[in-house]
Design a protein around this nucleic acid. Structure first.
Lengths: 236, 236
DNA sequence: ACCTGAACACCGTTCAAGT
DNA sequence: ACCTGAACACCGTTCAAGT
């Protein structure tokens, strides 16, 4: 649909297309998400975005303060949508797992969100995540005094995963993922590395072959089991 | 020591100082750490770095491929140093806690490391962290089949914390930290926010008053308890 | 072989001039 | 009130010219 380099000569004299509908923060955020998903984080520039919106780069500033605000709003929107799509479950433990997996799937579909979430502390998107996690912990019967630490622990875990996912995607955009991990695993088997890193050497094949989503899910289970154990066992 | 804006007139005609010792990757990395610690992430430019090194920006490329490599090498060096300083402990559970706290203290002293660690996946610094965690898990008696997931969970948790720490520091560089958290907590108490986020509303005061290091330490305990529970209980 | 620093190809952001 | 797009003040990186 885009006319990248050379356009067919048009019968009427070429004229710079100009948007007819009004520009809005919503439209900008939507266009930003499209660019980010299609071409990655580094492709989102004001020039690219304003071309997609058929306007000038300056026009964007009439609706959003700066690039950071565009990214924050885009991430927030996707987090809200992802949470709205999580089916409610009468079983509290299934509920918290469903929420955590929704986050994982969101980062899979939009890896740049992972980068954005570690850019501003306690931004709107993080509040939604914290709230969703906390609500389910409450339903799970976690005592009040553990709720803050428990919710933070789950949130920090998912943020760590999100960041790694984003950077892996940034680096391995074209490469296929398993070849990329195989390369790293092979590096762990190099004599020099292996000699000083025996644990990693032993884990190399698992790094190359593991199922990311399963491992994430297992990590969530570890933390949930820990929360349950500490709560039952009478404290930290 | 730096001559920032105006220099005293010197008796001999002013001459651009030129380094006498040879430039090296090590010297560049050391200078980069100094700049990053003193002035923050955004202050590290090739121009600033080459000024600190008394050379031209192009000279740096004779020793390191690009900015990413400088940051990765700087983070790696600090992680290695931090781990070298952790005293060995005969008690395995103290050992893993000491390693995890060493990471936390590292991010406190050099917040920019948190940003860097989520920039490249499985970079050298992460390998060191993974290895250190894994070695202690082995000592703790975690079964082989759980080691990869357990080590990854702890690593992802610490990476999440590191990222948040870095972004909080970036945003609140001059502001004092407690005032910054108070502001966010107050936002959670706003009528509009509180109505749709009751859990966060309830946690607001804890956000403002909690001890970061203690909470981190409690989070580590949750995960360790979960690993112990799952291992003892016969599987995920 | 290494250093120098101007030049290049970008950025995000601003702002006078338009409608 | 909003849009336009050239201009500004930066970046990281390159490279011809020096030593």
């Amino acid at each position: 649909m885009l006319c990248q380099d050379r356009c067919m000569p048009s019968p009427t004299p070429a004229r710079r297309s100009r948007r007819t509908d009004a520009l809005s923060a919503d439209a900008i955020i939507e266009a930003a998400i499209t660019v980010l998903d299609a071409e990655g984080e580094e492709a989102l520039t004001f020039r690219a975005l304003s071309t997609a919106l058929e306007t000038g780069p300056g026009a964007i500033y009439n609706h959003l303060a700066n690039k950071q605000e565009i990214l924050a709003a885009a991430a927030h929107r996707l987090v809200v949508h992802a949470l709205a799509d999580v089916p409610s479950d009468p079983d509290a433990e299934n509920g918290i797992r469903a929420v955590m997996l929704a986050f994982f799937d969101l980062f899979g579909a939009h890896p740049w969100v992972g980068t954005q979430l570690s850019r501003e502390p306690w931004q709107a998107a993080l509040l939604e995540m914290f709230e969703a996690i906390g609500t389910h912990l409450e339903a799970l019967g976690v005592e009040e005094r553990y709720q803050f630490t428990a919710a933070s622990s789950l949130l920090n875990f998912v943020l760590g995963v999100a960041g790694q996912h984003a950077s892996a995607t940034r680096l391995a955009r074209d490469l296929d993922r398993s070849a990329f991990l195989r390369d790293i695993a092979d590096g762990w088997k190099d004599e020099a590395t292996a000699a000083s890193h025996p644990f990693s050497r032993r884990m190399a094949d698992q790094l190359a072959e593991h199922d990311d989503r399963q491992q994430y899910s297992d990590g969530v289970d570890f933390i949930l089991a820990g929360i349950a154990a500490v709560t039952a066992g009478g404290g930290l």
